[in-house]
């Protein structure tokens, strides 16, 4: 009764109402920022007095925005690759290994996910100050890799657990070397998990603010740091323009994931 939509009576309109309002709540910031990025009002007044692309012009005219976006992109790509490679090795060892303490090790690999990131940021900041990694690309990559790796390990572990090991054994019985079996049979079998791990790792780095605030230097900053620094001064519509581009990128990424998921399923 309660789980059948047409037998809920007037209750269903309450539920539909709450859900409708929630959708509005979820969409409102995204839609308004996109609209305001084209508005002529410096103070982001809605409805805007006129429409303009001025803020996009200012965004692209300032080399620091493009530079920080490029820095973010490079770091996120390196992090995604390293995270998948190290995560795959770790997940394979954790799933197929029989050594003692596997469960504890698995839990350890996931701890960066639950630890408040500000603690890691402060701790790494202290270490990097000492070894001179602060404000370097290497420092950024290391810091982001620590928070990205748990997502890769988690995703690849569950993909490996869902993959029938008998197929890998069959390949070996048929004469493939164990490495060959992994590369040509297991990896294609868990390609979907590897792809998700890469996307999650990329996003974990691309969107990361807290670690980046501590790692950044005046000459090297990521896009979130640039947004953060600008935000602390004023709510300029240039940020709305940058945000709208980021939202567009997110939608593209979602579509890409949806298409690839559909492709692997059939």
């Amino acid at each position: 009764m309660l789980l059948q939509f047409d037998r809920l009576g007037w209750w269903r309109w309450v539920l539909v109402g709450i859900t409708g309002l929630t959708v509005v709540y979820l969409l409102m910031p995204i839609l308004f920022i996109a609209a305001l990025s084209f508005g002529a009002s410096q103070w982001l007044i809605f409805p805007p007095p006129a429409w303009t692309t001025r803020w996009y012009g200012e965004l692209f005219a300032d080399p620091r925005w493009l530079e920080s976006a490029w820095v973010s992109f490079v770091i996120a790509c390196v992090v995604a690759v390293l995270s998948v490679v190290i995560g795959l090795a770790a997940a394979y060892g954790l799933v197929r290994g029989t050594f003692r303490g596997r469960e504890a090790l698995k839990a350890f690999f996931l701890t960066p996910m639950i630890l408040p990131v500000v603690i890691l940021a402060v701790a790494l900041y202290a270490l990097f100050l000492r070894v001179g990694l602060n404000g370097t690309t290497t420092g950024f990559v290391i810091a982001h890799l620590v928070v990205a790796l748990p997502f890769a390990v988690l995703t690849i572990t569950s993909a490996l657990e869902g993959f029938d090991k008998a197929i890998e054994d069959a390949a070996i019985l048929c004469g493939a070397s164990p490495l060959e079996a992994v590369v040509r049979v297991t990896l294609p079998g868990i390609a979907h998990g590897l792809f998700s791990a890469a996307v999650f790792s990329f996003l974990a780095s691309w969107d990361e603010v807290v670690l980046a605030i501590f790692m950044a230097s005046p000459t090297l900053q990521t896009l979130p740091v640039k947004i953060w620094a600008t935000l602390r001064q004023d709510l300029t519509p240039v940020i709305a323009a940058a945000s709208t581009l980021l939202i567009g990128l997110t939608i593209l990424l979602m579509l890409l994931v949806a298409v690839i998921r559909r492709g692997t399923r059939s």
């Binding site: 090795a89 394979y92 197929r96 790494l124």
Partner: peptide
Amino acid sequence: PRRLPAGPFALVVPGLLLLVVFFALP
């Protein structure tokens, strides 16, 4: 069936080292 050249534990080591040096110890 032969084993992988590196044992399963060896595969965990790179990730483990990363997390010990840049997470647990700091």
